[in-house]
Design a protein around this nucleic acid. Structure first.
Length: 506
RNA sequence: GGGCGCGUAGCUCAAUGGUAGAGCAGCGGCCUUUUAAGCCGUUGGUUCAGGGUUCGAGCCCCUGCGCGCUCACCA
C-alpha cells in the first residue's frame, strides 16, 4: 500500500487530509470554480486600475501552493497555474479566525487551493488576490522538493532546486512541477512541431499516418524492435523509418505528403540517440535534393523565427546563425580541403583502407567503401560543421534509396544537414527506377549478409509500387528531438523528451 | 557491452578510518503588507544493497543495483 512506507512528514500530511475529511471538508472535491487564470487576473486588474474603476474586481483563482508566509493574523502565499504565479493575501479581517486557522493548520506547499476574493495591489506593489474564502482542491501527500525563487536584479535565482537527473527523468511530474524552465522547453517543442506542420500545410503537403507495426522494416539501416501479433500469428517490427510507405503514396498520386511520428531503433542510447524518437519526413514530387536544400533552410529558419523570435541560437557552446542561405559543402571537396584526401583517387574499399590505416582510423575488416568514406567524414568534417551546413553527394553504397548522379553512378544526390557538429537531417533525390532499386536491395543484402540484424530486407511490395511508376521526387527526414534540442540549446535529447527511457526501478 | 565517475535527511550539499552535520522544507512558538519574510526553539538518517578488511567503515576492498560522462554501436 502507498501509505505503508510513509515517512513522518508524509504521515503528517496524510493525517491533515483525513482530519479535513472528518471535519466535513472534502480534500479532493470534484469540481473547481476557478474563473480566471493567474495571468489573466493580473492583466484584468491592471486594466481595471488603469481605467480607474471604483468597483472591486472579484475573482476565483486556483493553483498549486508554491510559497506560504504566515504572519500571525495574516498570511501571504503564492499559487501557480499554467500561466504563472499570483500572490494570495489572507487577513483575519476578511476570512475570520476559523478559516485562517484552517489555512495554517491544514494547507501545505504543493497542495492545490481555490481562493475567492478581490484583486488588490499590496504596499510593495504586487498585484494580489485578497482572499475572502478558500478551500482545498487537492491535498498533496508527498512534499515537492523545496525550491525558492529569489529575484536578483530582475533575474530569477532558484535555490536548492531539484537537479538530480535520475529523479528528474523518473519522476518528470516532479521536475515539471518545480522547474518552470523545463515546462518552457516542452512548450517550445509543441510550437516547433506546430510550426513545421504550418510550413508544410501552407505548401500543399498532406499529413498522413502510416503503419508503425510493419511486417517488413526498412528505410534506414537500423536494428528494429520486434513484436508479435497473436491472432495473425505474425512477427511484426516497429518501424525504423516512414520512407517506404510515404513513397508508396507518391505512386498513389499524393504528390506532397509528410508524417510526424515515432520511429524505433533498437540501438544504443546517447545524448543524441534515443530508442524511440520523433521524426518528420516529407516527400515532394517533381522536386530534387536541391529543391529540398532550399526548403530545409527556409523551414528551420522560419520555425526558429516564429517560435523563438530569432534565427540566432546558442547550442553546444556556439552561437549559431540559422539565417539562409546555409553553407553547402560537397563531400569530395570537403575531404580534399579538410583531410587532404580525394576519394576519387581511391575507387575501391581496399584503396581507402590504406588511407584510414595510415591515419589510424579504426574500422572493421570488410567495411564497404561508402562506410569508410563515412568514417572520414565523421573524423574530418562533422566536428567542424558548427554553422548550418549541407554536406552533399554521398557514396552510392550507403544510400540504397537515393538516386545516382547522372554523370557519376558511384555518387548519389543526397545531403545531410549539420548544425553544431551534429547531424540533424537527411534528404535525397528519391530513387524511382524499380529495377535499379531492386539491384540496390540485392547489393545491400550482400553488403550486410554477415550482420544479420542490420540487413535491410527486400521489400517486394515496395518494388511493386515503384513498378507502377513513381514521379521524380525529393524526400527529407529530420529528427524532431534533435531540432528541439538545438533550438532550445539543450545538451541532451533527454532534456527534450518528457519520459526518457530508464532501467526499471528495483 | 567496455572505460571513468557518482550514490549521505524530502531537496541542495558537508563530514583525515574515530560521536553523521548545515541551509531550505517540516514541527512548536512570536509576528496585521510579506515575498529566498524574520526571530526563538526543535524533529528528521538502513550513508544505494550485500559481503569483506579493521579494535572501529559514509570513507578502504569485492560483488550487485541505479544514474551520469565517454567509447563502441547508430549507412
Amino acid at each position: 500500500m502507498l501509505t505503508e512506507d510513509f515517512s513522518e512528514l508524509e504521515n503528517l500530511r496524510l493525517e491533515k487530509m483525513l482530519q479535513l475529511r472528518q471535519n466535513g471538508i472534502e480534500p479532493y472535491p470534484t469540481r473547481s470554480y476557478k474563473n480566471s487564470s493567474n495571468a489573466d487576473a493580473i492583466k484584468a486588474f491592471e486594466a481595471h486600475e488603469a481605467a480607474g474603476e471604483a468597483e472591486a474586481l472579484k475573482l476565483t483563482l486556483a493553483g498549486r501552493l508554491r510559497a506560504i508566509r504566515h504572519m500571525g493574523k495574516l498570511s501571504f502565499a503564492h499559487i501557480e497555474d499554467r500561466t504563472g504565479k499570483i500572490q494570495l493575501f489572507m487577513r483575519i479581517n476578511e476570512v475570520g479566525q476559523d478559516k485562517l486557522d484552517e489555512f495554517v493548520r491544514y494547507f501545505d506547499l504543493g497542495d492545490f487551493i481555490e481562493a475567492t476574493g478581490t484583486m488588490v495591489r499590496t504596499k510593495r506593489g504586487e498585484v494580489t488576490l485578497q482572499v475572502e474564502d478558500f478551500r482545498m482542491l487537492s491535498k498533496a501527500l508527498y512534499q515537492l522538493p523545496a525550491a525558492k525563487d529569489e529575484v536578483v536584479d530582475g533575474e530569477i535565482v532558484r535555490h536548492a532546486a531539484l537537479t538530480d537527473p535520475e529523479t528528474r527523468y523518473r519522476q518528470r511530474y516532479v521536475d515539471l512541477a518545480v522547474n518552470p524552465e523545463v515546462r518552457e522547453i516542452f512548450r517550445i517543442r509543441a510550437e516547433v512541431v506546430r510550426g513545421l506542420r504550418k510550413f508544410l500545410d501552407s505548401r500543399g503537403f498532406l499529413e498522413v499516418e502510416t503503419p508503425i507495426l510493419q511486417p517488413i522494416y526498412g528505410g534506414a539501416a537500423a536494428k528494429p524492435f520486434t513484436t508479435y501479433h497473436n491472432q495473425l500469428h505474425q512477427e511484426l517490427f516497429l518501424r525504423v523509418s516512414f520512407e517506404l510507405y510515404l513513397k508508396r503514396l507518391l505512386v498513389g498520386g499524393l504528390d506532397r505528403v509528410y508524417e510526424i511520428g515515432r520511429d524505433f531503433r533498437n540501438e544504443g542510447v546517447s545524448f543524441k540517440h534515443n530508442p524511440e524518437f520523433t521524426q518528420l519526413e516529407f516527400y515532394m514530387a517533381y522536386a530534387d535534393y536541391n529543391t529540398i536544400m532550399d526548403m530545409t533552410e527556409q523551414m528551420i529558419s522560419e520555425v526558429a523565427q516564429e517560435v523563438l523570435g530569432t534565427m540566432i541560437v546558442n547550442f553546444n557552446g556556439h552561437e549559431i546563425d540559422l539565417t539562409p542561405p546555409w553553407n553547402r559543402l560537397q563531400i569530395r571537396q570537403g575531404l580534399i580541403d579538410h583531410a587532404g584526401i580525394d576519394i576519387q583517387d581511391y575507387p575501391t574499399a581496399a584503396d581507402l583502407e590504406e588511407v584510414l590505416k595510415a591515419r589510424q582510423i579504426s574500422f572493421k575488416p570488410g567495411t564497404p567503401r561508402g562506410k569508410l568514406i563515412n568514417l572520414l567524414m565523421d573524423t574530418y568534417l562533422e566536428p567542424i560543421l558548427i554553422q548550418p551546413t549541407f554536406l552533399y553527394d554521398y557514396p552510392r553504397d550507403i544510400s540504397p534509396l537515393a538516386k545516382a548522379k547522372p554523370e557519376d553512378p558511384s555518387t548519389v544526390e543526397r545531403f545531410e544537414g549539420y548544425i553544431g557538429g551534429m547531424e540533424l537531417c537527411n534528404a535525397f533525390t528519391e530513387l524511382n527506377d524499380p529495377l535499379d532499386q531492386e539491384k540496390r536491395f540485392l547489393e545491400l543484402g550482400r553488403a550486410y549478409a554477415e550482420d544479420d540484424e542490420e540487413r535491410n530486407p527486400m521489400d517486394e511490395d515496395f518494388l511493386r509500387a515503384l513498378a507502377y511508376g513513381m514521379p521524380p521526387a525529393g524526400g527529407f527526414g529530420i529528427g524532431v528531438d534533435r531540432l528541439v534540442m538545438m533550438l532550445t540549446g539543450q545538451h541532451s535529447l533527454r532534456e527534450v523528451i518528457l519520459f526518457p527511457p530508464l532501467r526499471e526501478e528495483e
